[in-house]
């Protein structure tokens, strides 16, 4: 039995570029996430320090992780869409 996609897959000249960008952004987020886990485990008391408007590091860091994920996702989509349009147009021209 073949495992072809449910819908016909379009040619994508930007897939390698997107994969590389994805990995870079993944590692960027991963480092910040590990920083959070490390601080929580090895410097728990420092999480009590007020950092913004009297709110402690734990709340601000946690919220920032969520908001940063959203921002990073939007940036990634913008860059990928732009590159897809650019490279796929070139590929079509070449054909």
């Amino acid at each position: 039995m073949l495992h072809e996609p449910a819908t016909k897959v379009e040619k994508d000249a930007a897939s390698d570029w997107k994969a590389k960008l994805g990995i870079k952004l993944f590692w960027l987020y991963c480092v910040i996430y590990m920083g959070f886990v490390g601080t929580a485990v090895f410097a728990t008391e420092s999480m009590k320090l007020p950092v913004l408007a009297g709110v402690n590091l734990a709340i601000i860091y946690g919220m920032a992780l969520i908001i940063f994920a959203i921002i990073l996702g939007l940036i990634y989509n913008y860059l990928c869409t732009k590159k897809e349009d650019e490279l796929n147009a070139k590929a079509e021209e070449a054909e």
Binding site: P5, S15, A19, G22, F26, G73
Partner: peptide
Amino acid sequence: WIVALFVVAEPMKRLGK
């Protein structure tokens, strides 16, 4: 979801049925 977006989403769509 960061792992899902940056690493898995598009290849999964490309390879699966």
